[in-house]
Design a protein around this nucleic acid. Structure first.
Lengths: 366, 366
DNA sequence: TTGTACGCGTTATCAG
DNA sequence: CTGATAACGCGTACAA
């Protein structure tokens, strides 16, 4: 049963069909230049031998692998998984396969991973976050490998980006809170080391707070991306450093933790504390209360990045940076600030019970 | 700035180092067989030219691409994303890159995707769910591409599987419910077409119900995997077809929807209805109430599948099927069945408020 | 329309 | 230890 026939080659097909190897190749790749009958003979022979062209030989000859790569922090985070999902879908439709490689949240390791990909022959690369390493940018250029960064916007002269403005998104979230009387806000951000998105968000936060003359000591906390980290961060800060009336989370996952912990501690959201997230994951609209959050266009980034790379590969079209919208979705986790230190009057229980019907009913975009 | 030097080859390095191409190759791949000084000259020359071996040429010569593939339903589902994440991590540590391809939930499309991967030169394949197509299995064998299926257990003579017993998991969940007096149970399952995991779970459910002489009309509902589908399914069935005292969901995502809808409808969990999930996602322990669910070992499946494939590739070791544990994690979403049609006595509100401290406090494995 | 000849870049083999 | 040579399998000028 186990025949070791070392996989058919064009030569085998040629022999069986009684033609030359060149003709086999033509019959398979440019059928129209081959006569009807030889084409049929060749196709039949190929089918009979289960022939398919050796990808390495083809790649060597054509200088094209039809493979692209994606380097992301992790697939464990829905936000990146969805990005890659969309990217991969589009790429696959365009005839490219996608190699996925994870690098953790510190972008310092990304160049090495990209090198690895390129050494394996990928023709284009999707990245998350900007790389501030001129040598690396230069490397990509001279290797002629188109690359797109997502989740942030382009600094000058670096890798083109298809993303959104993290600072602006943050400012809109803060303004939303400010309009409701929140001046003292706690920021929970994700890992900062080598993570330009988080750094940008924090910078926006600190800038805004400074402008308002608001002190920021003990108001910026770095967490891992996990529900538990959000729980812990909220608990520690609520118990030891009260005073803030709102929590701004750089990830919905953290916000989930905050809300869960609030329930456990008997802290009411938004009556005692308002909570804002960042991502707009599927579950965020179903939290109790539904989460006000920044809707990050992860699928769109993936799709557009794929489009751009494919067009570059096919027609040499330059990849242009693009800034997408990341609207604030206002739901029920944010409300008017209570007077600091003094719990607000309870507005009567059961916002949940009164909340029948479509979840999206009470949403608003900003 | 844009020098078009068409990427250095061994020949270029050889010329610069004043040696032959063969020596360059040796200096790079088996440094120990080359004299100290020539090695250094070669390495220096290679570094100066930014040389790295052409992957297609290497793959052609060595008959090895160092690339493997994974075909999964979608990356949009945390459960598969985590599987691939673990698989890819391990593979990458072993020197292999991973191409990810999605195929939707109907396994009918999988063979085609795998073919695509193999036509691109992958050396091994990770699958989700069994493929019942002898021709396909034969194809994999004669192409000598090791494959592993996950999420289910091996039927005889098919592709080796590293998974868990879906039927058994389902029976344990049902037994847990039965012990608490639940006889009339609603099953929400995911897409069934071409999805052997879901089919197995449903089969177990139907079998058990039959054995108990319990009617199953209107007790099996097929849903998409989304929170909203869970909400809708529960709403429709609760309003129109009361009678069941528990809902068994084939995915935590559906259970999330059920619990969210219960809150909206004022239905108490577990007093009025018990809810069981399947997956044990990160958020499931934080739902209100925390979700009783089957813990699917997705990371372990990914890791072990990678190990098995690597060992097959490296040492020709046969891949053995393996059945992993998928324990039922008992939390607070399941309780004693109320008398059908009559809401249970309320046991006093605020299980949440009393639920301080570690989330895992009240867990139990079965 | 088809066949012949060669090269893509690397590495295994064999001789030196 | 090193160099010459051939071959991996395909695709494409070029010639017929």
């Amino acid at each position: 049963m186990l025949d070791l026939k070392p996989k058919a080659t064009v030569a085998d097909v040629a022999r069986l069909a009684g033609v030359s190897a060149a003709t086999v190749s033509r019959a398979l790749t440019t059928p129209e230049v081959v006569s009807e009958q030889t084409r049929e003979r060749v196709l039949a022979a190929a089918a009979r031998l289960g022939f398919s062209p050796n990808p390495a030989a083809r790649a060597l000859r054509r200088q094209k692998s039809m493979i692209v790569g994606a380097v992301i922090p992790t697939l464990g985070s829905a936000i990146y998984a969805r990005l890659v999902n969309a990217f991969q879908d589009w790429m696959s439709a365009a005839g490219y396969l996608t190699i996925v490689l994870t690098s953790g949240f510190d972008n310092g390791g990304v160049p090495e991973k990209v090198r690895l990909l390129i050494d394996h022959g990928v023709e284009g690369v999707l990245l998350v976050g900007q790389i501030h390493d001129p040598e690396f940018v230069w490397f990509l250029q001279q290797r002629r490998v188109p690359a797109v960064t997502t989740y942030s916007i382009a600094d000058e002269l670096l890798i083109p980006s298809i993303g959104f403005d993290n600072q602006d998104a943050m400012l809109r979230a803060l303004q939303h809170l400010a309009e409701r009387g929140h001046r003292d806000v706690l920021l929970l951000c994700g890992p900062l080391a080598g993570n330009d998105r988080q750094v940008a968000r924090r910078a926006a936060f600190i800038g805004a707070m400074r402008r308002q003359g608001q002190p920021i000591e003990n108001r910026v906390v770095e967490c891992e991306y996990s529900i538990e980290a959000g729980e812990r961060a909220f608990r520690d800060n609520w118990l030891h450093a009260r005073g803030f009336t709102a929590v701004l989370c750089c990830s919905d996952v953290l916000a989930f933790g905050v809300i869960a912990e609030c329930q456990r501690l008997g802290v009411r959201v938004p009556d005692d504390v308002s909570v804002v997230g960042f991502d707009d994951l599927e579950f965020s609209a179903r939290l109790n209360p539904p989460l006000t959050t920044i809707a990050v266009p992860s699928e769109e980034m993936g799709r557009r990045a794929a489009e751009a790379i494919v067009e570059n590969l096919r027609q040499g079209r330059e990849i242009l940076s693009l800034t997408l919208e990341a609207p604030l979705i206002v739901r029920q986790s944010t409300g008017v600030a209570r007077v600091t230190g003094k719990p607000a009057e309870s507005k009567g229980k059961a916002p949940a019970a009164s909340d029948k019907g479509s979840v999206r009913r009470k949403e608003r975009q900003v």
